[in-house]
Design a protein around this nucleic acid. Structure first.
Lengths: 153, 153
DNA sequence: TGAAATTAGTTGCAAATGATACTATTTTCC
DNA sequence: GGAAAATAGTATCATTTGCAACTAATTTCA
């Protein structure tokens, strides 16, 4: 491995930096979605994955969104009540339901996706293509590493 | 500028990736501090900045930690009640108080700082020195950018 | 087979969080 | 000098969150 700082300075501490960057970016986007579509960030994530690949069970949504199952359950219920998703009990396993976007949900997905991408572009404005992929790759490695450190114990 | 994705795929969406990486890293560390020192992540941040430079006012802590003033107020009160920080009203401005670590607070800081750095090292294990500074720099730019996009409206 | 363990999803409750309003003090500036 | 605006920090209240317990269905395996 390589050297790492030996003295603690919050502003140079990776988990802190990560948290600040994430909170600012998420906050920005959360506010936009709330104001414009009345969606929480979790509801929007569920719509996003269902827009990519439906149907999914709640469990499938958990895996695809890295959200906790309680959060997913609540988001799905809220979306169901608003008529943006529909649930159908699986014949094979009656504990589980297939969840998919309704027509209106799909309409919202089509409307939201470009807005989401615009936000991403705005955030990454000024980053070269190479910097972007570096950033994504580094974040991926970091998340994997944190997951492995957390899981076993 | 450069190209950016034209189709929304959650798993390749920067704000999402950022959030996952941050939550996993923070969660890991939050659990460790809670279990080992009984500190929340905010309390620990306050201790960290006071360990670097004290005294600070609550306002100063806000700036140094990127925390909201209500959160800072609560963290300081909790630490005060546990005897880890002390507050002294400023003579010059009696609305403000100077906050600093008590002896015990300093003792905890000395104990915690190396643990924090160990966690950081564990997370960054496998990253080259160059990758680390890249990551930090990219996160910094991103946070700045998000802040500027958020502030004005 | 059928008791025990596992899994999908929900609910209830306590704690964390955030927006807003509030007190006390200081600054501005006419 | 003093009214109006600004600032430091706290309190209040409603919402969000997260954990643990729960129901219902399925799987395991003796």
């Amino acid at each position: 491995m390589t050297d790492a700082p030996s003295r603690l300075i919050l502003d140079e501490y990776l988990p802190y930096r990560l948290s600040v960057a994430s909170n600012r970016a998420s906050g920005l986007i959360a506010r936009a979605y709330q104001a414009r579509f009345g969606l929480t960030i979790w509801e929007w994530r569920v719509i996003a994955v269902l827009g990519e690949a439906a149907p999914l069970t709640a469990q499938g949504v958990c895996e695809a969104t890295a959200m906790d199952k309680v959060t997913v359950s609540r988001a799905i219920r809220a979306l169901d009540q608003r008529g943006l998703v529909q649930r159908r009990r699986q014949a094979a396993d009656r504990r589980a339901s297939d969840v998919s976007l309704t027509e209106e949900g799909a309409r919202i997905y089509e409307e939201i996706a470009p807005v989401a991408l615009d936000h991403e572009r705005a955030l990454l404005n000024g980053f070269s293509s190479e910097e972007r992929s570096q950033l994504m790759a580094l974040l991926q490695r970091l998340a994997d590493r944190a997951a492995r450190l957390g899981e076993p114990g």
